[in-house]
Design a protein around this nucleic acid. Structure first.
Lengths: 194, 194, 194, 194
DNA sequence: GATGAATGAGATTTCATTCAT
DNA sequence: TATGAATGAAATCTCATTCAT
């Protein structure tokens, strides 16, 4: 098997294990088993557990949000573009529920690990800039009110979406998450329209 | 020293250690040291680490929200009562930042530990019911729109507040958290008023 | 059992194991087994293998040559005092053959470990000073020639004695070692008498 | 590259590594790297680490003392021939200091490895016979005293020379080694002349 | 012949827990 | 009640060796 492919498989296994057991229960042996290899083989690719975690974080940083651009017909309308965040969040909750737990694990780790703090800063920074741009655009075209703090709106939207994920983690059923998202979308409209 | 007092001290130490190191780095010896006792003595009060964690969670459940009732002048006005959540969240961020990390740790653990899941269900359930009641009351008095799903509004508010904490954990500076909270308060107004 | 006693037992076991297996084959488990304890117990006394080795070296340094003073009737005559080194060496070869191997192990390790280098410097420095003093005394009383480099004589005697030990290590039988020592004693006489 | 040449390169690398790290730190991978080849390739030439060490020892045995014959004008005079051992030892200390450490490593290993014990027996046996022959010759020609045990003199000389190396290993500076050798030469004269 | 991947045995170390005092 | 000593289980990591290409 090709080394790069195997590396990817190991990282995927690390992702799954992290989602299920958290950093608390993350074990080299379990990751190796999940990847279908001997644990010494894993350490052939990543010399230490720490290196594996680093590699994992760098991989996440590289892939982050590469696949979550909104469709073009949505991007045209600023309000729709913002609302699409809720749609996207709900979809991710269903398609990649593991990613939620992993993200929250990383947030906790960020306090102790500068590498993770940097990753999160880039992830949230990029997301925030994107949303802030949309809000500014809306203000520019007159679609949104002029007296809004675009950055704060972006932060508020991100907080709402992240909070949704957190509630889901804590056991809130999906129907309630959906209802919450609907309120979120409506809120955006009320807040932004002139 | 009185046994009950010592138990409380141990639990307080566990809380501090959990905030700083997370479940990942939680050690019986560190907790004992933090509490100023020998680790074997700790296991005298809590026979196993697991029992200590259980005791800790039960303690949290007992104390939950006992101290965060809004002042009476605020409770009178439903909108103010809801807005007060943001004020309260900002205050907790400053006064008990450790509690944030602990709460998020518990949310992650909830997926693996039914006891924690139950605790969180009670915690968030109580909170939600309280907020839902306020919204219903506002609708009843005509202060709020009639076409709102009170439960969903409560969930949305909780999500926003929790999302705030999460952003703070991920490194967002307090000024931006404050600006975000301001937007949140305004949003509530726009959403709820008839 | 008293902790200090146990520490001593562990160090004694380390000594024996080092003599038999060398640093090459030195294992924490074997030392613990030799001391009759669980290997985790050993690490209760010495937190790491490295710390154990350090403790061992410091112990050696503390004990070095404390018990090998020559009898008083020998000390009176400088020539006898020097000759006594051969007697002592032969006795040590028979009584504590393990110490030879350990000493040579330490000499090899000295090149990589400054702690050991320091220990050996002190050990050989003290020994050399003692012998040098004897030679000077002999010169002063007229028992020895006046044109001798006392330090070099001390070094030569040490080298001969150490070389004896090395030959024994390499398999030379004891009778030949004894014959060698006899030559050494005679050599001293020829070299030193005026 | 020719197989025999490569074998030699590997053995040379093993020699260097053994001198620097000792048996304690000897690693197949390091030797291969030192020889500029992949470690799996090394195991192609020597199927196991043990086989490599064996090959190394046999090589040493084959080469032993092949290059250290004294010059002819020295060999003529028995006293000079013996004294030449000190000259040779001092030269080796400067030209091939690595060989000292390797030799001492082998002496320690001899206790556990009959192959090494055999090698050393041959090495020292040959050396001793050579020196013993010189002494006998000196006695025969009347250059030396008649009452000497030729074998013991040879052993004493070997011990002195080996002891010199050991002192050097333990950190004695070269000037003191030279002074010691001078004493050694003088001693020989005093001991042997009629 | 040469090499990268893979693995099994075993080493050190951590840590919750038990036991005797 | 309190504690130091002791231990067993398990985790990470090292390293010689094997195998497929």
């Amino acid at each position: 098997m090709e080394p790069e492919l195997r590396r990817q498989e190991i990282l995927a296994a690390a992702f799954r294990q992290l989602a299920v057991r958290g950093f608390e229960g993350l074990r080299v042996r379990s990751i190796a088993q999940d990847a279908g290899i001997h644990h010494a083989t894993l350490l052939h690719y990543f010399p230490t557990k720490e290196a594996l975690i680093e590699g994992f974080i760098e991989e996440l940083a590289a892939r982050f949000r590469s696949g979550s651009a909104p469709p073009s017909e949505v991007r045209a309308d600023p309000l729709e573009a913002l609302r699409w965040e809720f749609t996207d969040a709900r979809r991710r909750l269903r398609r990649e529920p593991e990613a939620i737990a992993v993200t929250v694990e990383l947030m906790l780790r960020a306090r102790r690990d500068p590498l993770v703090a940097g990753l999160l800063a880039r992830m949230f920074g990029g997301w925030r800039r994107q949303l802030e741009g949309i809000v500014r655009r809306g203000i520019g075209t007159g679609a949104f009110r002029a007296d809004l703090d675009a950055g704060a709106v972006a932060d508020a939207l991100i907080a709402e979406v992240q909070g949704m994920s957190l509630l889901w983690l804590a056991g809130t059923p999906l129907e309630r998450i959906d209802a919450l998202a609907a309120i979120g979308g409506r809120t955006l409209e009320e807040l932004l329209r002139p």
